[in-house]
Amino acid sequence: MGCENWYNLILKARDIVPNSVLGIVVRMKHLCRITFFLVAFCVTVAHSETTEFSAKLTEFSNLAKGFSKKNITPEDVETLLAAFKSILEAMKQKYILDKSQVTSFIFRYPNQKEFPDLSEHNIQNKYDEQIIKFTIATYLVFINLDDDILRKIIAKSPLELVSLLQEFDVLLQFVSADPKEFGHGVFSEKNGNQLVVFATTEAILRIMRVIVIKELLAQGGVYKLSRTTTAVLKDFQNKKPADILNDVSETMKRNTADDSRIAIFFPEKP
């Protein structure tokens, strides 16, 4: 039915239906239309927020792939470093600044001990252990990575930064875990501009495991850590993280398909 016919029908209806009833019908129609648009708008905004990071990551990954295929120049390194920092800044803004109104965060234990300390974690099995250790390693990489190390890593293997961004995204999601999704989020307290996150075994296993499965294990049920995080995970009990990162940036090879990377996965029981 065309618009004109519809309009004629309304005019005819006006002759037989009281104006008050017609008014209600018209208002209801407007209300339904506005509600529909509002719902559509909200769905679109929510969807764009969830895909925003993956779109940026894909864009960054394409850039890194382009650089990895040629001899990388100092200008290329700076370009990629700037792109990496811009994504990281946006992630910090979204997860920490917007939610907690702080500029940085540190992990601690409720007894104020410094993180990490494996004796603070009562680990039950090897699958719990991999989540605790992944959290520790990602955190240590996050707080110890500086521009010079990043430059060296980019020059050796630009694609390494893609894995690092994925891991940092998971870490930041843990820091800003939403109580609506996890029963309650991580316990934290503000200390000026810094957020002190209490990274207890309970919080890590309850929240981090869910995020890791959702974000990293979706494809094939297994995720191999970045080479940087693998190196920290293997050696953080014996060496300073900054030294490990320095060594990694010096020795990293161009090929990213490195089978010695540590795998995260969970057993399945159908």
Binding site: T58, S163, Q219, G220
Partner: peptide
């Protein structure tokens, strides 16, 4: 090379 990190992990 299509995965984000540039390497396909086999089953």
């Amino acid at each position: 090379t299509s995965p984000l990190n540039g390497s396909y992990l086999l089953s």
